[in-house]
Design a protein around this nucleic acid. Sequence first.
DNA 1: CTATGATATGAAGGATTGTTCAGTTTGAGG
DNA 2: CCTCAAACTGAACAATCCTTCATATCATAG
Lengths: 209, 209
Amino acid sequence: MTYAAPAALKPRKRPQQRRATATLDAIFEATIQLLVKDGIARLTTTRVAERAGASVGTMYQYFPHKQALIYAVNEHYLDALAERIESTCREYHGRTAAEMVEAVIDTYWRAKTERPDVTRALYRSVVELDNEALILAFADRTDAATTEMLASASDRSFADVVSVNRTLVTVVFGTVRNSFERGQSGEIAEELRRQLLIMCRAYLEAKMN
Amino acid sequence: MTYAAPAALKPRKRPQQRRATATLDAIFEATIQLLVKDGIARLTTTRVAERAGASVGTMYQYFPHKQALIYAVNEHYLDALAERIESTCREYHGRTAAEMVEAVIDTYWRAKTERPDVTRALYRSVVELDNEALILAFADRTDAATTEMLASASDRSFADVVSVNRTLVTVVFGTVRNSFERGQSGEIAEELRRQLLIMCRAYLEAKMN
DNA sequence: CTATGATATGAAGGATTGTTCAGTTTGAGG
DNA sequence: CCTCAAACTGAACAATCCTTCATATCATAG
């Protein structure tokens, strides 16, 4: 089962010539910059076009409406994030469960804190959307990757890998997000990350068989 | 240190006569109903007034603008939630740490899943706001209550209660929210709750001294 | 060089909606 | 019953902004 974007949110057409991909990139970049700077409430199509060095009409050749633009930007971001996690999972295939957990926490944490302003801006923009498909698609990709990795652990085997995996990813992703929302950073955030790792490892011990 | 609402978001005045409190209640109720039904994007001041059986002008006597209304609704909700958690903390004062964790998870989980549509609607509406004060005030209240409770555990004493506590609440609250966003419910959600409890207890064991 | 489709333009239309305010109604105290 | 402040009304104003489309420019293949 794969989750596709609602028809109404899909792009109108794909760029074919080089300059078209360039303007599309510019539009994406402009959107993120404006989201970071002024938030979604002040994101207008005209401003996006202006900052992208294009005109509104151009934007409307690629997206049927504003929502589709925001959708595309988030999709882009989540795709990149999922790819990073999949990459980590490939890299840690066959290692110990404890190493795996640490690797996933680190990857996710780093991805989210690299550009905190962008992370925050996108978190805030995605709620404006019919984002179910977006979230489910991301969850499915990461679940598949992490489950496969966890099943390959060299030191453990779990009676119910799927449940253990779902628990771990839900906890890790949720914790990072919550820490983020509380505005934690610096030493407090670092400490939390350490504790989260301890917690996950303790869970692995408890689930050993 | 206490977090006050930004001046711009505070109500204009408080009701004095009985009918005034009645209309205020109606406005609150109408706001939530509309948020649930159509989402924040379609929430207009006119519609709120209409459904509340009042006029727009009335609404503007109590709130300087739309944002202040949404702010007030969320504040109301978070206050009630914090109160429930504080109550649980008082009730479990002096019990074992494992019992405490279970109680907090249950309280929070129940509060969030009682009316999932309301929870979701408010999650979505709060990002429109300058919500820092809101979130920090809530975090402070719950942190204080849970820390105090945890420090009273009959079977444990922690070298760093504050850190352990912060970890636990961040993990629990974050996990519930994430589970919520993934649309999990029914048996999968139940299973996750059980696993979360196992995880937290394993963490407590690991932190024992 | 020319033809054709891809790409870009941006003023104008149209619709929505937050907010005000001058005037009316209601309630409570004297 | 009278008075005054509290509470309420809703048409009108003002501002914003999404989206379209007729037109223009550009790139490429033949």
